[in-house]
C-alpha cells in the first residue's frame, strides 16, 4: 500500500503467493507464524480461502506478500484456480508425518506447473518438523520426544532425502519447517522473495490497470491468461536452501 517507512527508502513490490496442500498439514499455521509470529494448536480449518499480507525485507528491496491461504479439503479444490491465477509464487505444503499429504502436494505441483503462470516460483514445504524429533532424517522408526499432545506416535514418515530429491527434480525450493516452533518459516518466505525474478516485480499498486501483472488488477475476464509470462524460467532456481 505505502512505501516502507525505513529511513532509507527501498523499492517496494507486491508478490502474490498462494498456499496449497492437503487439509490439516499446517498451511494456515505457517501463515500465522509468518504474519503474526504466533501459533495456535487446533487452529480452525480454513473455509474457501483466507487473505493476509506481510512484508519481507530484503537487502535491496521490500517485498509485500499478498497471501491466499486456501482450504485443504478436496471439496474446495475446484476453487483453487481462483486463488493461484496469476500468483507469482506458491507454497505447496505437506505434513511430514503423513505420506499421503506428499502425494497430494505432488498433484498440486503438477497442476501449478500445468496451469498457473509460467515462471511461478514454487516452494515445497514439509511441515510439523517439531513432531519428528530425529537427528537422522533417514531413521523413520525413531520416536522422538513428542511435543504435541494430540498426535500420538506422530513420527516422520517422509524422509528429507525423498522430498528433497523430488523438489530438485521439479526445480522447487525445498524446506522442512515447524510452524509450531517457527523453525525455517521466515526462511521459506525470504527464499521465495529472493527467487522472484526482478523483471516480474512491480511497484506498489496504483489502481486499475496500472500493474504489469494481469493478476486481479485486470478487472476484465480476458485477463485470465497471464500476459506477464516473460519471467518464465527466469526464476533464480538456486536449488535447495535447506
Amino acid at each position: 500500500m505505502t512505501d516502507s517507512t525505513a529511513s532509507a527508502p527501498k523499492p517496494s513490490s507486491s508478490v502474490k503467493l498462494v498456499l496449497l496442500g492437503e487439509a490439516a498439514v499446517g498451511k494456515s499455521s505457517l501463515v500465522l507464524r509468518f504474519v503474526n509470529n504466533d501459533f495456535q494448536p487446533n487452529k480452525e480449518p480454513t473455509i474457501g480461502a483466507a487473505f493476509l499480507t506481510q512484508k519481507c525485507q530484503l537487502p535491496s528491496r521490500t517485498i509485500k506478500f499478498e497471501i491466499w491461504d486456501t482450504a485443504g479439503q478436496e471439496r474446495f479444490a475446484s476453487l483453487a484456480p481462483m486463488y493461484y491465477r496469476n500468483a507469482q509464487s506458491a507454497l505447496v505444503v505437506y505434513d511430514m508425518t503423513k505420506p499421503s499429504s506428499l502425494v497430494k502436494a505432488k498433484h498440486w505441483v503438477a497442476e501449478l506447473q500445468r496451469q498457473a503462470s509460467p515462471g511461478i516460483v514454487i516452494a515445497l514445504v514439509g511441515n510439523k518438523l517439531d513432531l519428528c524429533d530425529d537427528d537422522d532424517p533417514e531413521d523413520e522408526a525413531q520416536d522422538g520426544e513428542n511435543a504435541e499432545g494430540h498426535e500420538e506416535e506422530a513420527v516422520r514418515k517422509v524422509s528429507t532425502a525423498e522430498a528433497k530429491a523430488y523438489a530438485e527434480e521439479e526445480s522447487l525450493l525445498f524446506y522442512e519447517t515447524s510452524a509450531k516452533t517457527g523453525h525455517n518459516v521466515s526462511e521459506v518466505f525470504t527464499a521465495i522473495a529472493n527467487a522472484i525474478p526482478e523483471t516480474s516485480l512491480k511497484g506498489p499498486r496504483t489502481g486499475a490497470g496500472g500493474g504489469t501483472q494481469a493478476a486481479i488488477s485486470g478487472g476484465q475476464d480476458t485477463s485470465r491468461v497471464n500476459l506477464n509470462a516473460r519471467g518464465a524460467d527466469g526464476a533464480a532456481k538456486e536449488g535447495c536452501a535447506c
Partner: peptide, 22 residues
C-alpha cells in the same frame, strides 16, 4: 471493478458457505 475484483471474489467464500458462522 476499478480494483479488479472479479465477481467470484466479491465477498469471502466463508460468508455464505458457513451461513456466516466462520
Amino acid at each position: 471493478d476499478e480494483l479488479g475484483i472479479l465477481p467470484g471474489h466479491t465477498v469471502p467464500m466463508k460468508w455464505f458457505f458457513t451461513a456466516f458462522s466462520s
